[in-house]
Structure formats: structure tokens, C-alpha cells
């Protein structure tokens, strides 16, 4: 780093140092960013649809909810909502954890716990919708 940064030699040296550090692009750098946007766009109509549906079923008994979720269109949109919502949420929580949990062991442990917890929640939500759609 004591040599001028603009010489070819130091540029190569820096690149090797970058490799040694194990940081920088692994050729999938935009994957996280892009999926966050894809799910965000999908969630715009899905969120509006769900809020309207939820208001429509406020105070409804279980039978009415099961009947609502039992419709094929509702079940499809609910599964889409669950998939996009939990993917978006995992990506967001991942960044928050990476930003604030500095100790590496604790960071990895927190990330794994978050992925497991949100993954199980997503499966529970999907199974619940499927049960109402198929078993009634």
C-alpha cells in the first residue's frame, strides 16, 4: 500500500489481497438485491388484495374464513403472498442482522435461527391455507 495505487503491479497485488480476504464479488452480488425488488413489486398488489380481503372478513367466524381460504383463487393468491412475503422478510432481516451483529459466530447463529424460524412459519402458513383449500 506504500506503492502508488495506480501502477499495474499494485492493482494486481490489491486484487490478490482482495481474494485472500475472501471479500468482494462471488458473481452473485446482485442476487439478493434483485430478489428483494422482485418480491417488493409482487407484494404491492398482493398486500392491497389481502388488506381488502381481511377487512371484508373482520369479525367473521371460522366457517367464513375457511370458506374464503377454500376458494382456489384466494388460496393461490394467499400462497403467492406467503411466498413473496417470507422471501422479502428473510432478505430484509438478513441485512439487519448482518449490519448489527458484529461477532461472526453470533452473526451466523442468528442468521441460521432467523432462517429456520421464518422458514417454519412460512411452511405453517402455507400448510394452513392448503388444508383449508383442500380439506375444508
Amino acid at each position: 500500500m506504500s506503492t502508488p495505487a495506480n501502477t499495474r503491479e499494485s492493482a494486481i497485488r490489491r486484487s490478490l489481497l482482495g481474494q485472500m480476504r475472501g471479500l468482494g464479488s462471488a458473481r452473485s452480488g446482485t442476487g439478493h438485491w434483485w430478489m428483494q425488488r422482485v418480491t417488493a413489486v409482487a407484494l404491492v398488489p398482493l398486500a392491497i388484495w389481502f388488506v381488502i380481503g381481511a377487512i371484508d372478513h373482520l369479525g367473521s367466524g371460522r366457517t367464513a374464513i375457511v370458506h374464503w381460504m377454500g376458494g382456489p383463487v384466494t388460496a393461490t393468491l394467499m400462497l403467492a403472498l406467503i411466498a413473496c412475503m417470507f422471501e422479502h422478510m428473510q432478505l430484509g432481516l438478513q441485512v439487519v442482522i448482518e449490519d448489527y451483529v458484529h461477532n461472526e459466530a453470533r452473526r451466523v447463529a442468528t442468521l441460521l435461527a432467523m432462517k429456520a424460524g421464518t422458514g417454519l412459519l412460512a411452511i405453517l402458513a402455507a400448510i394452513s391455507v392448503l388444508k383449508m383449500a383442500i380439506a375444508g
Partner: peptide, 28 residues
């Protein structure tokens, strides 16, 4: 960011509501 984290916590209620509706009258 804070709203996003709050919404993540809120999914607990969302999933509870869905699972209860799928489960039984008592749970719902």
C-alpha cells in the same frame, strides 16, 4: 427498516390466525 422489522414480528400474528383457522373452532 424499523417498520420492516415490526412487520416481521407481525407475521407471527398472521400465521397464528391462519393456523388457528385451519386447526379448530377452539383455536380460532
Amino acid at each position: 427498516r424499523m417498520a420492516g422489522v415490526a412487520l416481521a414480528v407481525g407475521t407471527l400474528l398472521f400465521v397464528w390466525w391462519l393456523a388457528a383457522a385451519a386447526d379448530s373452532d377452539a383455536a380460532f
